[in-house]
């Protein structure tokens, strides 16, 4: 496994804690929602960055009040066919305004990066055979998109509006 963030392979500074692992004194950690609920005060009192990992059935609404204290949210894909986290990601970005790292973990395929990036993911735990070139190929497969999502690209709808405005102006 390796981490792709903002299109490049980078070293992972985060420690993903299993529920039974002892909490290290320092360093950024990612914990499960269960653990966060149990040890909320302890975790929020640490100086280092905190991340929460949500399972496929755990809607982000449950953490929306803590988002400004979180530097990372990891969303699990138990199988590549399970697209629930696409909605979670969209909601985290667009409705709850989460600005930290949004990380996809679990089963994602190389031809899904385009969709993942559009709903707001910026980091991916991927298999070692995924290179930055492959990643780039996938996210740049389509120059424009029909519908608005959580990325900054203007949708075709607004491009058409612009074209119309330009035509009117001339």
């Amino acid at each position: 496994m390796q981490l792709i963030k903002d299109g490049a392979i980078i070293a992972d500074e985060w420690t993903a804690l299993a529920d039974e692992d002892a909490l290290p004194a320092t360093g950024p950690v990612i914990v499960s929602l269960d653990r966060f609920k149990l040890e909320q005060n302890l975790l929020l009192a640490r100086k280092d960055k905190l991340g929460i990992r949500l399972k496929s059935g755990e809607a982000p609404e449950q953490i929306k009040d803590f988002l400004d204290r979180l530097a990372l949210v990891a969303l699990e894909f138990p199988a590549y066919r399970n697209g629930r986290a696409f909605s979670y990601a969209y909601l985290l970005r667009e409705r709850y305004g989460f600005k930290g790292e949004l990380r996809a973990v679990g089963a994602v395929l190389r031809d899904q990066f385009n969709y993942l990036a559009r709903v707001g993911f910026d980091a991916y735990e991927v298999r070692d055979n995924i290179t930055p070139e492959i990643f780039k190929l996938s996210v740049s497969a389509f120059e424009h998109d029909y519908q608005p999502s959580a990325d900054s690209k203007p949708a075709v709808l607004s491009l058409r509006q612009r074209r119309l405005a330009a035509q009117k102006a001339t």
Partner: peptide
């Protein structure tokens, strides 16, 4: 078409 949220 290629709806990023609703393709899976």
């Amino acid at each position: 078409t290629f709806h990023p949220e609703f393709s899976f």
